[in-house]
Amino acid sequence: MSTTTATKPRLTTSAMIASIAAEGQRVTAAPFGKALVALAEARPEIVGLTADLSKYTDLHLFAQAYPERFFQMGMAEQLLMAAAGGMAKEGFMPFATTYAVFGTRRAYDFIHQVIAEENLNVKLCCALPGLTTGYGPSHQAAEDLALMRAIPNMTVVDPCDALDIEQAVPQIAAHDGPVYMRLLRGNVPLLLDEYDYKFELGKAKLLRDGKDALLISSGILTMRALEVATALAADQVDVAVLHVPTIKPLDTATILAEASRSGRLVVVAENHTAIGGLGEAVATALLTSGIAPRFRQIALPDAYMDAGALPTLHDRYGISTEAIGKTLKGWLR
């Protein structure tokens, strides 16, 4: 006689750094760290600074490769930002890393007054952007893009995958001035190599065309948008995806050209609160140009979000592939 033991179902994890990659998805490990190490060989002015989070921002690879050019600032984000500014004043190009919440919220005045006011050549690379951790509001940077967009001189980048990050690193280094880049770390999904795509700072790229709806997206929501488009194609719904990895300056020419093509529903999808991110930036660009298509926003709520497993939270707040697909179908009905 066989006996079965009733086992409890394994609970989903709300771990802080759970990978955003789906099971079986192709990934690249530490694309930021690798790209920075490669670039730094020819660029001796590149230095790395972190606030006790080198391992969790993939900057440890740089620290191992160039220990004399790596500076540990301790868990002191105000010092991190101001010291990065100080090093830039001495001719270096600091890459400063921490989590997006601590960088953008806690050290805002230091980015605003020390780095951006003097247009210093500091690259802020901040992990756990938007809703990419289940740790709750202390670690969820739902408003980082709004905060960084509001700072004059600041360039803002929201890469989608490992390829985007790999190609963005040398380009943000080539740009003279402060850059805020949302960082995906650890095992980062790789998908844009399947498209005829190259990251170009300041450029939006149409990844696929479609006649029913135009999804304008950045960051990991471009990955979701592409998945949604594939899924809806099976239902004969034809969805275009315009990837906007540079949030500021916004590629308004490409966005306006795509949005003014007649008849399509225009939806902006972003891993960010609906306030002050890509959605509002696109809406402003459209309205001030006299282009008024049917317009909808998929974004995180204006609310303190729950702790929990990422898939649970992405479903709950409407940015999972299934949730976006369902919402979009409802709007197209």
């Binding site: 101001a82 010291a83 100080g86 090093m87 004043k89 001495e90 020390v114």
Partner: peptide
């Protein structure tokens, strides 16, 4: 003082 820390690190590195 925090900016000064960065400048002092930079000067030393140079």
């Amino acid at each position: 003082l925090a900016i000064a820390v960065g400048m002092a690190l930079g000067l030393r590195l140079k």
